[in-house]
């Protein structure tokens, strides 16, 4: 892949959809990340890796505005999130979908109702369309139709992931944030999941920010991979760049026993 260019005239120009600069986040006396820079380009699938507890979820939540930051700027769709008035912020939230690490389905609603929540809130749909569209999303993520009327507490771990993805996709967002979408799925299911993400990216021009530990996903669907370590992005680029990296964690991550097993 050619190097990215920030010059609009260049043929390699890619619009930056999320731009994070000098981000510092911490809790109490503990600093989770400092001086973190990250770019996500429109229409790409970015895989985000890093050791457990390194702050991948915290970074995602900070971009979404759920965790306060201590310093730095975050721009999404070219707008600085700090400068946005609340209504603008709401408009922006309509354009992204989020799959939380633990699903975060509304426990009092059925799967179908969960998927319909954003639709009811933001769209003006006829009852029939509301119903059909929810069922469509539910089937697209690989759930059986009879799961639609189940309560979240009656779902298996993998079904929760899928239902949460259906909800994240319900408005056809421009960006989806996925926090470990394939963990807890069987390998075939995870493969389907990746395929679905790739299809949606192709057809809807979706930008995907995906935190994952799944080496298969990183190889098969991610256009670029970024790695978080010591509170910074230690490397970012196509998978080949990562494989060539000399960073000790990346070396053991991509060249360890399990990685070799995946890559053959």
């Amino acid at each position: 892949m050619a190097p990215q260019s920030s010059d609009p005239a260049s043929p390699n120009f890619r619009e930056t959809i999320i731009r994070v600069r000098g981000l510092e986040v911490g809790f109490g006396t503990k600093t989770v990340m400092k001086d973190l820079d990250l770019d996500v380009y429109r229409g790409e699938i970015l895989g985000f890796v890093g050791p457990s507890g390194s702050g991948k979820s915290v970074l995602t939540r900070t971009i979404l505005g759920l965790v306060p930051k201590r310093a730095g700027t975050i721009e999404v769709f070219g707008e600085n999130l700090d400068d946005l008035p609340p209504e603008e912020h709401r408009r922006l939230e309509r354009r992204w979908g989020v799959l939380f690490q633990h699903g975060a389905l509304f426990s009092a609603l059925t799967v179908k109702q969960n998927v319909q929540v954003p639709m009811r809130e933001y769209l003006d749909l006829s009852d029939r369309l509301l119903d059909e569209l929810a069922m469509l999303k539910i089937e697209m993520v690989g759930l059986k139709p009879d799961a639609a009327d189940k309560m979240p507490s009656d779902l298996s771990g993998g079904m929760i992931k899928r239902a949460a993805l259906a909800r994240a996709l319900s408005l056809d967002p421009e960006i989806v944030f996925l926090d470990e979408p394939t963990s807890g799925l069987d390998p075939i299911g995870a493969g389907d999941f990746d395929e679905l993400i790739a299809t949606l990216q192709k057809t809807l021009g979706l930008t995907v920010f995906m935190v994952t530990h799944d080496l298969d996903s990183l190889h098969s669907v991610c256009d670029r991979v970024a790695a978080l370590g010591d509170g910074k992005v230690i490397a970012a680029g196509p998978i080949e760049t990562m494989l060539a990296s000399e960073h000790p964690w990346l070396r053991s991550y991509f060249h360890g026993k399990r990685a070799r097993a995946v890559m053959g």
Partner: peptide, 18 residues
Amino acid sequence: DEHRILLDEVAYRGFQTS
């Protein structure tokens, strides 16, 4: 192309709704 893929992906089918 992308619209064609999308049309194939959604592929209309009736849902029996409760």
